[in-house]
């Protein structure tokens, strides 16, 4: 089994109707549900930078900002989303079908690394950034990337995982609904004298019979560790089995 270890310096999660760790705790227990409407406040952004951001981009900014260390140099960024800003791509395709001109804004912001580009302009961040989409394995793949970047560069790394409900047109092609949610994390390499707070392990191949974990399942697994409910969680995606272990998790 392969694994990466890292320290988790900060995390935050937001979904319509859910923000604070207590709310996520209630969600995990089935006492609260995600809502479908609502978007987070991004008051920290000047109006001219804010106006073009989709709800998804606003969520990403909130995930990154809430985990950012204001005292430290700007960190490398990892952006993860299974479908990205597919809503914008869909609008472009609709325009093409109607033989209309394409919106330059939608075109420029539909690419997968647009959000980290905008965020890097906002923060003057010239560090490397990576945008990942890996099917149902999107989040853990991004976590591997962030942990490896943190280890390779020997510095902290910001990770954001964001998903959004897809346009109606695409829903029949999906196995299940995609939650509208964002999760931010700030990772650091384990210090020599300290034990790593977290470890992600994986092995190729998945059990033939069982369904892969959907985004909501992965989020629930992750929350159980982040909220200190369980020391370990296992799930499998499209082609990989994953295990996340957390120790000394502070909420």
């Amino acid at each position: 089994m392969n694994s990466v270890q890292f320290k988790l310096r900060a995390w935050s999660a937001w979904a319509p109707g859910l923000g604070e760790p207590e709310a996520w705790s209630d969600w995990l227990d089935g006492r609260r549900s995600m809502e479908s409407d609502g978007r987070p406040e991004v008051d920290f952004l000047p109006p001219l930078q804010r106006r073009r951001l989709s709800r998804m981009a606003r969520m990403s900014f909130v995930g990154l900002e809430s985990c950012r260390d204001a005292e430290a140099p700007e960190p490398p960024l990892v952006y993860a989303s299974r479908h990205g800003e597919v809503g914008r791509s869909f609008k472009l395709l609709e325009s093409l079908a109607r033989d209309e001109g394409l919106s330059p804004r939608d075109f420029s912001l539909s690419v997968h690394n647009a959000t980290t580009g905008l965020y890097s302009i906002f923060r003057g961040n010239t560090e490397p950034s990576v945008a990942i989409a890996a099917g149902l394995d999107t989040f853990p793949t991004a976590l591997v990337e962030a942990a490896v970047q943190a280890a390779d560069l020997a510095r902290e790394c910001l990770l954001v995982w964001v998903e959004e409900d897809l346009p109606e047109f695409y829903r029949p092609y999906l196995d299940g609904p995609v939650p509208t949610m964002v999760l931010g994390m700030r990772l650091a390499v384990p210090e020599a004298e300290a034990r790593a707070d977290m470890r992600l392990s994986w092995t190729g191949g998945v059990p033939g019979e069982s369904q892969p974990a959907c985004e909501t399942d992965v989020l629930a697994a992750l929350m159980s560790v982040l909220l200190g409910r369980s020391p370990r969680t296992d799930w499998h995606g499209d082609r990989t089995q994953w295990r996340l272990e957390g120790d000394r998790v502070a909420t």
């Binding site: 001109g101 394409l102 919106s103 804004r105």
Partner: peptide, 9 residues
Amino acid sequence: SIDALEIGV
């Protein structure tokens, strides 16, 4: 400049 293009479209 993106606004200029957007206005044009």
